[in-house]
Structures are given as structure tokens and as C-alpha cells.
Design a protein around this nucleic acid. Structure first.
Lengths: 338, 338
DNA sequence: TTGAAAGCGGTACCAA
DNA sequence: TTGGTACCGCTTTCAA
């Protein structure tokens, strides 16, 4: 059916070993022989059989990616950047979506391990670090992205979460806000980090961070705008009213925005709002939203590079590296005061 | 390193052949033997080596997906649905993004063919049907989605494009619009179909479809809102002004919306607007946008099923099937007149 | 610099 | 119902 090494070897009157070495630039082969081999390969459009190679070398030249939700722009941007880097290095990318379900995520990990991927990259929805033990057991390199876990020293690529909160809060302060509230997210590392950053920016500026100024949004996913609206309505009952709000993410910020407008207040004049994620294009919104960009492409690139280097060096997790990228403030109308 | 069939066989005092057959539910094996084999497999958490199996059977149990842009919600929803179906059938999904670049797309096709995927699913950015010849040459089943080509009878899953245009236009007519314009997309099948639907709905209602009422948006991708704004500004120079506009997609519709509001006109009272794609949540927008839903999840599912059935039946493209799903109108404020 | 032989971990065929 | 044997296409080892 397809062309095999054997065919090339026969055509050229050499052995398959010679062909194999020529393909992989083995120093054994004379330039002349290599040239003949490569030419014939081109002519026949020969493609080595990966399965056969995998069987011998144990490497699949494929990396697995597991994300909570492929439709979320953050994760699809990560996936896109990842795919780009892997393409350059001739690796394949197997993607699966855990649908924010920890059990399904464990399933997918097993599946990808069964496929013998060379490395795994995971944006985990787990509550505990348990499932990563399995991966380590199999000796497969893995990189966590976006969310990390207490007590698990694993290779990680993400953004400086505290800096996110500081950047947003400092910006509100710079815009003249005096009472800055926070609508926080769930009990996962990015949410906790951002909240800590909010607190730090306030204390550095000798501002109060009263407990009443922190409210939780009951949902932070796609339906987060409802959660954000509820949360903002609770903030709107406080006296004195906050005049600036840092929201855990953009959907929540949108909900908050809606609540403020419904109450007859103005954004940003009465209350300024900052989101996070930078996922919503300004032209689409009633009030274009100031947000914090998390450099999702950068996260994808770094994660890919880290995974590849772990594969190459074969050093499992001697000293797990952590890469934290810096977030960027994107100023739009929701905070722009003269 | 990992457990092999040989280990199971030795433990149980049977041959590897027996184990192999037991795993695959071959009718040869006695229930008792099968039971013993399966139990031992559980105990050792044995996972068959896919590469070895692939080498013999020629099947990789992986399907390749190529999309123009993974970040576009339409394609990520397709990918998500695809992944779900394939997971149930124990297939892997290799994803790559062609970045809307025909040359890159051809590259990716070669890559995935070299990986010997069992089938390919492609939302193509090609101008011609040339590259599909290569796939057919390799005897690999493939399914096109979203965009198709004149003169190429290939398996296809998409939406009834004409129906999209008709649904949108009929809705505008039902809302009392009398002069309905269209902002069209590029020279690809969905854009042409939607335009044809617009024309058909008008003619069925004995309305005029003057050429001046069709304008092109210079971009239809993520930056489509600028293109939509430009196009709408051109429509706003016409006399009489249109009082309804069907836009090729949602980003264009958003741009059109902006142009109308900037001109001091009201939506939907002065001009009603319909988009397509249903990608923008209503709560985010200045005026929530009426749109046509394309059932992206359905497209993903059907494409997966079609690819799987082509793999199973081994019938290449005897009679290429075409599946056209029905679009759905989602009414929101941008057209809601009393 | 080249190649013969062994083997990676399974499956297919056919005989027992 | 079970299993011996050949073989899938490639890489590795070691001898020539």
C-alpha cells in the first residue's frame, strides 16, 4: 500500500538500516549515500510509519492537552498557541475537554496515558492533587497550566495572579476611586491570588479592605454574568457605596456592569469596573470593559516548550520549574475617568 | 516497563493469542478463560500498546480535525462536540489550526496523513478542491464541514445555508420591515448560500432585491465589526434607507449596529438587524442581537458519526453523503418590534 | 561506512 | 477452544 523503507532500500541497492540512518541524519552515512536516499524519499513521497517507530523507541511524538472547556476563549487561545509550537517541532496535539468535571478529567488522563502520549498538559479542575500521582507513576512528564495546587510541586505555567489583582486595583486607585470592592471567584488558585492582590494593593495605599467589600459570585463560568449581577446587587446595598469594583473575570464584570446600570448609576463616573481575562471585544459592549490580559498565547507557548524540554532531557521532575507570566492592564471606558 | 500481553499470558498459563482474543471479545474464547483474562487485566491495569496494534491493523484509532481558527466559537464548539462523540467510541482527536491559510492547511493535511489518522475532518479554507485529491489518493476517509466546493462531491456536514438567509429575512419581513438589505461575506459557500436565501425570501414575498441593497464587508473574521461598520455606513447613504439588515455573521452585525447608533438612529425601531452564528451572549451587548443559530454541536456530532461510519464500512466515497442541519432563529432585541 | 539479525507488542492465519 | 508461527515497519546492536 504505502511506500516503506524496504522499497527505498531495494530501489537503491542498500539496506533498510542505511535508509533509516540516512533519514535521521546519523553520522554513519556518507553524504553521497544520504543524498541518494533523500532524493528517492522525495520522489516517492515516503513518510515513515510512526507506529513502527513508536513501537521501537517508545515515543509517540504526540502531546495530550486537557482543558475544562475548549469553547472558553482562554483555553482555546492556549490550545492554538500550543498547536503552533508543537507543529514546528513535529509533534501532534491530542485535545480533550473535561467539561469542568473532575471525574471526566481523570478518565481523560487515563485515556491519554493509554495512548502513550510523550507528555501531558493539563488545566485541571481537580480539587486535590491525587490524579497527578498516576501520571507520575507512569513516568510521563506533565505540565499544569492556569490552576495549581497546594502541596503539589509540579511544573507549572500560569500568570502572576497576585499581580493581576494589584494591577486592577492600583488602576482603580489611580482613577480616583476611594472605596474599592472585589467580587471574588471560587476556591482555586487564580481566584485566591487575585483576591490577595486586591488586598495588597489596598494595604500598600493605606486603604481599608473591609470584609463587606468582598462578595462571592455564585458562578464564574459562562453564566457568570448572572452571578456577577447578583453579587453587585449585594454591593449596591452597602453604605457607603463602593466607587470601584475589581471582578474575578469578565463575565462577572459584565453582570456587575448590568446591575450598576439597572440601578440608574453611571459607569465609570459613579462606579468604575475592571474585569479579568480580556475576552470580550470592546465594540460589542454597552460600556467597553477595562480588563486584565492574561497572555494566554504566552502560557500555551511556555507550556509547550516546557513539556518538550522535559521530554528531551528525560529528567522527570527533579526540580519542577514554575513559569509565571506578567499580566497586562487593558484600559477601556469602564474605568476611564478624565 | 509497562505490562504487556505476554505478562498476562504467562501469569495465566495461556498464550498471548488467547489473551488478545479475549480482550477483543473474539467468539473463540470460552467464557471462563475470558473471565480469567479480564480479571488479570484489571488487576494489573493493563493497557494494550496502541502502536503495536496499529502496526498490525493499520488503524490508529485517531481522527484529525483541521479548522481555520480554533478560537472562533463556531469551530471550538464543533471540536468540543466531536471530542465528546469520539471519546465514547474510544477514538483520539488530533486538532490543528490552519490559521485561515490555505498553504498551511495543506501542510497540516500532509502531517495528519503522515500520522496515519483513520479519517480527517476539515473546515477548509482552500479556494479549490485540489488538496482533497491527495487525501483520496491515500485512501483516507474525510468529511468536509461548514464550507464546500463546486464540483467536488465529497462527504459534507453543514447547515442549510439558504435556509439561514430565508429565516433571517422572513423574520425581518414579519417584523414589518419593508426595505431589507444584506451585508454579504466572502466568496465561500456559506456566504453565497445565505445571500441566495435572502434573495429567495424577498422574491417569495414579492419584494424587491435591488443590487444597491447588497454590500460587501471587507472582513468577516474577528475584526468583522469594522467591516460591518463600513458596510453599514455605505447602506446609510442610500435613499430610501433600508429598515432591516441581514448580516452574514455576528461580528459584522455588531459593526452594523454600531454604525446605526452612531448615526443617531434606533435599533430596532428605525433599522432592525439580524446576525448569524449566535456567538454573542445577549447580556453583553448594547442591543442584544437577533441571530441565526447554526447548531455547531450538531455539526460536530454528525461529522464524527459520518467519519466513524466511513472508517467502519471501509466504503470510501462510493456515494458521498451530505448532511444539512436546520438553522434556528434566535430572536432578541435587535429585531423585536411590538 | 554498511548491513544481518533480533526484537518492539501486538494480530492473523491456520493447524491441532 | 486454543496456540504456533509469521509478520506489521522500523530501530538497535554488533559484526564485517
Amino acid at each position: 500500500m504505502a511506500v516503506r523503507m524496504k522499497d527505498i532500500a531495494r530501489d537503491l541497492g542498500v539496506s533498510t538500516v542505511t535508509v533509516s540512518k540516512a533519514i535521521r541524519n546519523h553520522s554513519d552515512i556518507s553524504p553521497k549515500t544520504r543524498g541518494r536516499v533523500l532524493r528517492r524519499i522525495k520522489e516517492l513521497n515516503y513518510q515513515p510509519n510512526l507506529a513502527a517507530r513508536t513501537l521501537v523507541t517508545g515515543r509517540t511524538y504526540a502531546i495530550g492537552l486537557i482543558v475544562p472547556d475548549l469553547v472558553h476563549p482562554f483555553f482555546s487561545e492556549v490550545a492554538k498557541a500550543l498547536a503552533r509550537v508543537l507543529r514546528e517541532r513535529d509533534y501532534g496535539l491530542l485535545i480533550s475537554s473535561s467539561e469542568e468535571d473532575p471525574a471526566l478529567e481523570r478518565d481523560e488522563i487515563e485515556r491519554l496515558l493509554a495512548r502513550r502520549v510523550d507528555a501531558l498538559i493539563i488545566a485541571s479542575t481537580q480539587r486535590t492533587a491525587e490524579s497527578f500521582r498516576r501520571i507520575r507513576e507512569e513516568g510521563v512528564p506533565y505540565v499544569l497550566i492556569d490552576r495549581r495546587f497546594d502541596g503539589l510541586t509540579a511544573p507549572f505555567v500560569g500568570v502572576q495572579d497576585e499581580e493581576v489583582g494589584e494591577l486592577a486595583t492600583q488602576h482603580l486607585i489611580d482613577m480616583g476611586c476611594r472605596r474599592i470592592a472585589h467580587i471574588r471567584g471560587p476556591e482555586i488558585s487564580p481566584a485566591l491570588g487575585r483576591m490577595a492582590g486586591w488586598r495588597r494593593a489596598l494595604s500598600r495605599n493605606r486603604r481599608a479592605a473591609p470584609p463587606a467589600y468582598i462578595v462571592s459570585s455564585r458562578s464564574s463560568d459562562d453564566a457568570g454574568d448572572n452571578g456577577g449581577r447578583d453579587a453587585m446587587q449585594r454591593l449596591l446595598k452597602l453604605k457607603p457605596l463602593p466607587d470601584g469594583v475589581f471582578c474575578y473575570n469578565d463575565p462577572i464584570a459584565i453582570g456587575a456592569l448590568r446591575a450598576v446600570l439597572e440601578r440608574g448609576l453611571r459607569v465609570p463616573e459613579d462606579i468604575a469596573i475592571v474585569g479579568c481575562g480580556n475576552i470580550l471585544h470592546s465594540a460589542f459592549l454597552r460600556v467597553p470593559l477595562t480588563s486584565i490580559d492574561q497572555d494566554s498565547a504566552g502560557i500555551g507557548e511556555k507550556a509547550a516548550e516546557m513539556a518538550l524540554s522535559m521530554i528531551e532531557t528525560k529528567k522527570p521532575s527533579a526540580k519542577p520549574k514554575t513559569i509565571l507570566l506578567h499580566p497586562t492592564l487593558i484600559v477601556r471606558d469602564s474605568t476611564r475617568r478624565e
